[in-house]
Design a protein around this nucleic acid. Structure first.
Lengths: 201, 201
DNA sequence: CGCATTTTTGCGGATCCCGCAAAAACTTGT
DNA sequence: ACAAGTTTTTGCGGGATCCGCAAAAATGCG
């Protein structure tokens, strides 16, 4: 990767992180694009060269994470489908993956900020849309693996959409209940239930 | 229902329908709020008294449809869960329900317009968000029925999110492939697969 | 170094969406 | 039927977003 692409990736990450950080701290609609740009050392106009909206910038990290699931799915064609899904999905939500890169001030305060942020309709929409984008990739990976046809068969899309839906629901649950149960365990549980046909508990 | 509420409901429906109609015909971003308002015989400002964005107006009918699912679910507490879900979901997508009320010009052209419209990111987000709103209601209905706790248990949220996800996926599939298979059949199939633990085909 | 490509930036403009307060439409009680 | 109260509509103004365009700055390459 050349100097150029690396620099681009860096500013992109910087902008995304600044957008998230500021939104969680001060609220999505109180901060302006100008603030994000200033905090990232670029002009406001440049922000919009990278992201077409505040929401897109904030959600970018989440989107990347979901796209990595599709990527990993393609790299493990040997295992049974649901095992591979679990093996691809769970690692993305291990605490170190997200937490190690950049320092998070205070866990409780952060969670509160995220909850606040997610009350914004625009953000919810953007988050779900990121899921839909990743869903397409995951569906393609599932189609490859199961030998089904992306354009003919419902199956790969159905599997992908359920995986993404389960992920969203688990994250919401984890935010709603401040339980100490780690996200990965909740996810594993959800996947197991889905594979078992969702028996009434 | 008093004169007043009825009138409000009417303008709301008129605005929503005009927004959908115009967007499908001319494209989401080519039409202005002003156009929708003019086509509905109200001032532009009034549009924003009813809907906080173009997207919200367009998606309103879809949201209503999904909310009716939760409503119906509460009205059939007797049946087994997945039967009740099917019985509540499928009727919402019978052709007469949507088509009888207002005349649709040309089926093929309409579908093309809808596809065009759905390329707009803002619309995708809004559509998914509508699903999320309905999901909350459906989860509540499922919790009632299964005696689970909305705030404690993952189960009702998981079921609701999968139902909504399946609905989205089926609709997307139906739009993607212009097959003659009716949406209801696809939905029934998807629900059956979910209840069976998604066996590889 | 000098040229070509890519990226950043500033500017202008169209649109959107909301708060506010006046006007209009409707409801209610007498 | 009329007056008083309530709800809805409307116009205005302003803040913010996001995009196209073209100049300027940065970077890559021979």
């Amino acid at each position: 990767m050349g100097w150029r692409e690396q620099k681009k990736a860096e500013t992109r990450a910087t902008l995304s992180w600044a957008a998230l950080q500021l939104s969680v701290e001060r609220g999505f609609d109180t901060i302006k694009v100008e603030d994000i740009a200033r905090a990232s050392g670029v002009s406001p106009r440049t922000f919009n060269n990278y992201f077409s909206s505040k929401g897109e910038a904030i959600v970018a990290r989440h989107l990347d994470r979901l796209l990595r699931v599709a990527e990993m799915l393609r790299e493990r064609p040997a295992e049974p489908l649901w095992d591979a899904i679990a093996q691809s999905l769970l690692p993305q939500f291990e605490p170190d993956t997200a937490a190690a890169a950049l320092p998070i001030p205070d866990a409780a305060q952060w969670a509160a900020g995220v909850r606040m942020m997610l009350t914004e309709p625009a953000l919810q929409g953007e988050l779900l849309r990121a899921g839909a984008v990743a869903e397409a990739e995951i569906a393609a990976a599932v189609a490859e693996r199961t030998g089904t046809d992306l354009n003919q068969d419902l199956y790969p899309h159905l599997v992908a959409s359920l995986v993404v839906a389960a992920t969203n629901t688990v994250m919401a649950h984890h935010l709603r209940t401040n339980s100490s149960v780690p996200v990965e365990r909740l996810l594993a549980d959800a996947l197991a239930r889905i594979a078992a046909g969702l028996p009434t508990p």
